[in-house]
Simulated scan of single mutants.
Amino acid sequence: MPITAVEKDLDALTMTVVADFPVPVRRLWDAYADPRQLEKFWGPEGWPATFTRHDMAVGGRSQYVMTGPDGETPGGYWEFLAVDEGRSFEVRDGFARPDGSPDPDLPATRMVYTFEETGTGARVTTTSYFGSLTELEQLLSMGMEEGLRSAMSQIDAVVADLTSFAADRRAESQVLSDTQVRISRVVRGTVEQVWDAHHDADLMRRWMLGPDGWTMPVCEPATAVGDSYRNEWEQENGEGRFGFTGEVLEWDPPRREVTTERMIGMEGPAAVNEMTLTPVDGGTLLTVVVTYPDAETRDSVLATGMVDGMEASYARLEAVALTPA
């Protein structure tokens, strides 16, 4: 059991949980920075979490649901108030309605996570700040302390896994819901390098090609909210031309952007792509959450080999467009 201390201060309206792990600080930090890892322990045992957004930067936001043993799906969110990479982060932690908006009927807390080295590895100290004694008592009665203890008990297995989230793994997809898919890969480059490679036309033409044998004759990137982009590809023999166009909905360089995506010449609703870049050990965790109009569209797109094509492009990105992080 990694928890070494739990202290409740009713006068200061705080609860502090201290947990120690036999791993470097960076490994423990990355477990919180990577949504694939975080959802393996965030929540009590038997209530796995699914993160549809995890934007670990000041002003960023995380959105998740937990699935209970009887199919319950309570939601929650984090609003990032401060981030000192590798050392600490501070969030407003609250309950969410089914549409993702904050639930005004339940209290939110301010939580500060501090990471430090110890003689045997790393320690994370979680301090929760409550708005009133009533809120503290309400959340404790709802099982907040037991939930944190249960969540912490699951971190050991996550941080001991040194292969599932390493920088040498291929791009992988994970179905998040009936309409959403998350594609993840660690790219060996800095956040700034990976961002530039997605928005500089000359760089994009060098790597964003999918399988060998394709060229990118049209590359018109967007650089602000409301801008439109257009990308077209064709085989080297001039056949098989296709492309996508869309609009920027949200823009927060060099960390995050949200765009629509529609295949040129196709009717119907557009997909929505949310790209998030997060610094981790070995480079930058590139996460793309794609929201499709329906499950049928989701499955038909995945069946085209989209993720394999993205992996070919990311491997080329590391080889020809980036320098080591």
Rank of each mutant, 00 (worst) to 15 (best):
L322K: 07
T260G: 02
A271G: 09
P104G: 05
D34Q: 03
E146Q: 14
E318H: 07
E234P: 11
E145K: 06
S101E: 15
A151N: 08
M306I: 03
G119E: 12
G68T: 06
T126Y: 07
D200F: 10
L136M: 14
D212I: 03
T134W: 12
E145M: 06
S128P: 07
G265V: 03
P254G: 10
I155W: 02
S228W: 07
P217L: 13
A197Y: 04
E79I: 14
E236T: 14
V175E: 15
P35R: 06
A312P: 02
V25H: 02
P74A: 11
D168G: 00
G76F: 07
S173Y: 09
S101G: 13
T276F: 01
S132L: 09
E247G: 04
D196H: 11
T52D: 14
P24V: 01
V320W: 01
R169T: 14
D9S: 01
P107F: 03
D84Q: 12
V320S: 00
T245E: 15
G309D: 02
G189S: 03
E135V: 00
I155A: 03
V159T: 07
G240E: 01
D20T: 00
M1E: 08
V112D: 10
L249S: 06
G309W: 01
Y64N: 00
A270S: 13
R97Y: 05
A31N: 01
T190G: 14
L317R: 00
T14A: 08
P254Y: 09
S173C: 06
D202M: 11
D11M: 10
R185M: 10
E45W: 04
W47F: 13
R149A: 12
E274K: 12
F41G: 09
T16N: 10
S88F: 14
E296C: 02
Q235D: 12
P104N: 06
A108E: 09
R241Q: 11
